[in-house]
């Protein structure tokens, strides 16, 4: 009888496998004839071991911004048992010891197997039909969380994912009679048939501050506010915190009883045009100037100037 190679599973022989043992013997009987005999056969069935492993795939904190929806935490769930097993998944957003909890969480399965969340492609976890994993099989699971608007810069949130064998879990060695693959018993393995791991959100909150100042030059070389005096306004915007702010536009209305000096907008010392239609950041719409700074990273300061003349 040739031995066939057993497929090597981490949890060993597949649940439901029958182990059959038969020995044979031969001897020289009366008259010298060789007699061959077989023993009885003993059959054992391999029970199903229930083991689950959950590990966070994120290399570190996942950076998020206030009010950001569907921020993704990534986990891998592995069936460490020796039989196919549906995995019941649960997200725990209200773990203690952190700075905030996401407003809402949902669980998605990596449907296309690329390891990263694809909206509209990956499938929402259905608690009525948990994903079944073969022995040694892993799936990538995403938790999508909505970040509150009230988070402060550097605030962290711990969110856990728990996966539990649907057949049952508990103290290692607990037996679920007849609940295993092929009618075998299911036995809770060393992991307790349930495991969890956590990922972290870290809020990057950028704040903008604007400081305005004015310098007056009168037609006589002084600084009096008389008709014909030129006022140079300086706006300094400073973004602090961490991360960046998108779509930053600095605008300022031209004060009453003054007239805007055409073409006087500067950004960080460089001149800008008044046209809103061209590529540069400056514009004047007849009542206010605006400078479109786009996305501004924390730690950046921009200085904008423009001039008006007192009517």
């Amino acid at each position: 009888m040739a031995s066939t190679a057993m497929p090597a599973y981490a949890a060993g022989t597949l649940a439901g496998t029958t182990i059959e043992n038969t020995a044979s013997a031969s001897y020289d009987g009366p008259g010298g004839a060789t007699v061959s005999i077989d023993s009885n056969s003993v059959e054992l069935v391999v029970d199903e071991i229930l083991d689950v492993d959950v590990v966070s795939n994120d290399p570190g904190d996942v950076g998020v911004a206030p009010n950001e929806d569907d921020s993704v935490l990534t986990f891998t769930v592995t069936n460490g048992g020796n039989g196919p097993e549906p995995m019941v998944l649960a997200a725990n957003a209200s773990l203690g010891g952190d700075d905030f909890d996401p407003d809402a969480t949902s669980i998605f399965i990596d449907g296309n197997g690329n390891g990263s969340y694809d909206a509209g492609v990956d499938t929402a976890y259905n608690a009525a039909s948990p994903p079944s994993l073969d022995p040694d099989e892993s799936i990538v699971v995403f938790i999508l969380g909505d970040i509150p608007g009230s988070v402060g810069d550097g605030d962290r949130s711990e969110v856990g994912l728990t996966a539990t064998a649907q057949t049952g879990s508990g103290v290692p060695g607990t037996v679920f009679a007849g609940a295993g693959e092929g009618g075998s018993n299911a036995v809770v393995g060393a992991t307790g048939a349930s495991d969890d791991d956590s990922g972290f959100y870290a809020a990057a909150v950028a704040l903008i501050a604007l400081v305005k100042s004015a310098v007056i030059a009168d037609p006589f070389g002084g600084a009096t506010q008389v008709p014909g005096s030129t006022i140079t306004y300086t706006l300094v915007s400073s973004v602090t915190g961490s991360g960046s702010l998108p779509n930053v536009v600095i605008s300022d209305s031209i004060p009453a009883d003054t007239s805007y000096v055409a073409g006087s907008i500067t950004l960080d010392g460089g001149g800008l045009t008044d046209s809103a239609g061209d590529a540069d950041a400056g514009s004047y719409d007849g009542s206010a100037i605006a400078v479109d700074l786009g996305t501004v990273a924390a730690g950046t300061s921009n200085t904008i100037t423009f001039q008006v003349v007192i009517d």
């Binding site: 057993m6 182990i19 043992n21 020995a23 044979s24 031969s26 001897y27 020289d28 060789t34």
Partner: peptide, 12 residues
């Protein structure tokens, strides 16, 4: 005489 026993090991 010449008694011999063979036990093939189950694959598992």
């Amino acid at each position: 005489e010449n008694f011999r026993v063979v036990n093939p090991l189950p694959d598992a």
